[in-house]
Simulated scan of single mutants.
Amino acid sequence: MATRTGAAAPTLWRDLLAIMAGNTLVGMAISFTAPLLALVLEARGYSAFTIGLNSAVASVGIFLTAPFLPWLLRRFGPIRCIQAGTVVVAAALLSLTLSESIVWWFVIRLLIGIALSVPFVFCEAAVNALADDASRGKVIGIYGTLFSAGFAAGPLVLAAVGSQGVLPFAVGAAILVLGVLPVGLAVNADRAMSISNEIRLPMVWTRAPLPLVAICAYGFVEVALFGLYPVYGLSVGMTGAGVGVEIAILLAGSCLLQMPIGWLADHLPRASLLLACSLSSVVLILLLPLATQDTLVRWAVLVLAGGTLGGLYTMALVLLGERFTGADLAVANTAFVMFFQIGAVAGPSLSGLGMSLFGPFALLPTLALALGATAIVHLARSRRGASP
């Protein structure tokens, strides 16, 4: 289990909130730039396939960066790595305005994915390393709430700024640079992540399979849901505005329920709580086609679905922090992000295939099956008496 760093509690909370604030702004920049780049490419006449492929290239970044993250951590420490990675992403985003060449955009999008994996891995690892195990659920719940809020704000900023010209790229870069500033206040993060047992990536799976399966399922569902739910919604007679409202309600549910779930994680068996989030998400997703008669009931289902889906992420990160300490958390979080990206690639691909073969109504059962994998792994390991 992770241990205290020896710093006073107010100092630790200053460090935690500094890292959380920085990563919240990074999350805002991500949700701002992803639709921005898609809109710009669409305006230039590129096909949906090309736009999707350009977006997918960024996901390859973590797999290219993973072998070098432990060395970067030892050489520079987490804070300087987070700051440098974020600045590189900001500079790369601005460099997209230098050329309209699609080859250039693919190269830069790959660079963005490589650089972005550094703050993602080290921010999550630093928060887990600084957190005391007794309050880890509360800490990760706050972290998840703030990141979700930042992620939800990105599209609103884009709607205000628009997608024309250099301005939106400058705004995205400015948000990222602002995210660098608070992280520098986290003076205890380097010390908290200095302890290491020199674990390697395959060892993360043997020691913590349940969090990895859970985050893979979360990535599968999140990316497929936000990418394909508009197709499903329009097929059942919803308007584009109505789909937007329902996605916003899902995000609101994720923001609202992370702290309560985090609090429960400090008072209940954590693996069991993750199982409850998984099974609840399955039930709520399958209820959506039935909850059509009463708007308030449907919104309640959406809020709870968003909350339990977000709880899957929160609980997976909490369980990861239970099993690894210090610098080992950087390796564990690398595996964590890699499994998320595997799910993020598989989710829209397999869900889209299912919708092509069986119609739009196949989306929700496909997502439910993916979430069910977490429950299967938990129950299988529990029957064998193994740690989840």
Rank of each mutant, 00 (worst) to 15 (best):
L257W: 09
G262C: 11
R298P: 05
D294E: 14
W299A: 15
D294V: 14
Q258L: 06
G321P: 10
G262I: 05
A330R: 12
V331K: 14
P289M: 04
T314R: 12
L329N: 02
S278Y: 07
V303D: 08
G306A: 06
T308Q: 04
L312G: 12
V331D: 07
S280L: 11
G310W: 12
T314Q: 13
V283F: 08
G262N: 10
L287R: 02
L288D: 01
A276L: 15
L317E: 10
L279K: 01
V318G: 13
I261P: 09
A330I: 11
D294F: 10
S278C: 01
L304T: 02
M315A: 02
A276I: 13
E322R: 02
N333E: 05
F336S: 06
W299V: 15
L256T: 08
T334G: 12
V303Q: 04
V297Q: 08
P289C: 03
M259A: 12
I285P: 04
R298M: 12
T295L: 15
V297C: 04
L274R: 03
I261E: 11
I285Y: 03
A327N: 09
E322G: 04
A335C: 02
L256K: 05
T292W: 06
G321N: 05
S278F: 14
W263Y: 15
T314W: 14
A252V: 13
G307C: 02
S280E: 05
G326Y: 02
T292S: 14
P289K: 01
G326C: 06
L286H: 08
V331P: 06
G321R: 01
V303L: 15
L268K: 11
A305G: 01
R323S: 09
F336A: 13
V282I: 09
T292R: 15
H267P: 11
A332H: 07
M315C: 12
V283C: 07
S254K: 08
I285L: 10
L275A: 08
G307W: 10
R298N: 05
L320H: 09
V318M: 06
S281A: 15
W299F: 07
G253R: 00
S281R: 06
T314Y: 15
A332K: 14
T314E: 14
V297P: 00
G326R: 00
R323F: 13
W263Q: 13
S272N: 02
L273M: 06
G253A: 00
